[in-house]
Computed example of a mutant assay.
Amino acid sequence: MPEAEPRNIVEKFFATVGNMLETPVVWVREKIVEPNQKSYPWYHQKYRRVPTIDECYTDDDVCIFEANAQYKRDKQVESEILHILRERFENCTLYEAPDHLEKCTHLWREYEDAATNWFIKYGDLGAYHNAKSAYMKQKHRMIWERRHGPVGSGVKKDTDQAPAEN
């Protein structure tokens, strides 16, 4: 919508003064600030991915430190995602008060899946854990699943015993 033409001398004066103040500011913003801004669609800083703990040599302290820092950042991000999913479910139950069992079940399932995955990765590690302890937990879980089937399924593969002959 184009600006209306000033009706009298006072409006022309204020429009001129306003343009004198606004024009340099707009020029600096468009020519200097915006071309030099980092533009990324995230609300948090996006760090460069470093090698994980399984890719580090045992005597490479810098690599191990970076892997631990990345592990802690990933845990914080995943914990915040879990917190947001929990808040969404709670807000849905408050908003959809009598019918929340039907209308909010998809949010509950998403939250439960995310909480299960978070616990698989970070749960039962204790207060002072690092990337190596999480990696060892993952390794032990894979060995368990290879020997006994998926955790929590109650299925145990009987590969060691020969089939009974009748």
Rank of each mutant, 00 (worst) to 15 (best):
E5Y: 12
E5R: 04
R7G: 12
R7D: 11
N8T: 04
N8A: 07
V10T: 13
V10Y: 09
V10H: 08
E11N: 13
E11A: 15
K12C: 03
K12E: 07
K12A: 05
K12W: 10
F13W: 11
F13D: 05
F14H: 07
F14P: 04
F14Q: 06
A15P: 08
A15Y: 11
A15E: 15
A15L: 12
A15H: 12
T16P: 07
T16A: 14
V17N: 03
G18D: 04
G18K: 02
N19G: 05
N19C: 02
M20S: 03
L21T: 14
L21R: 02
E22P: 03
E22Y: 07
E22K: 08
T23G: 03
T23P: 03
P24H: 06
V25E: 04
V25C: 03
V26Q: 15
V26R: 15
V26S: 15
V26E: 15
V26G: 11
V26T: 14
W27A: 09
W27Q: 06
W27T: 15
W27C: 05
V28D: 08
R29Q: 06
R29H: 09
R29N: 08
K31T: 06
K31W: 09
K31C: 03
K31D: 08
I32V: 10
I32N: 10
V33K: 02
V33L: 00
V33Q: 00
E34V: 07
E34S: 07
E34N: 09
P35E: 01
P35W: 00
P35S: 01
P35A: 01
N36F: 01
Q37T: 06
S39N: 13
S39D: 12
S39M: 12
P41Y: 01
P41L: 08
W42P: 04
Y43N: 14
Y43F: 09
Y43V: 11
H44K: 13
H44A: 11
H44N: 13
K46R: 11
K46G: 08
Y47V: 13
R48D: 14
R49L: 06
V50G: 00
V50D: 00
I53G: 05
I53P: 01
D54F: 09
D54R: 10
E55Y: 01
E55D: 04
C56I: 01
C56M: 02
C56G: 01
Y57G: 12
Y57K: 05
T58Y: 12
T58C: 09
D59Y: 12
D59S: 09
D60C: 01
D60S: 02
V62M: 04
V62I: 11
V62D: 03
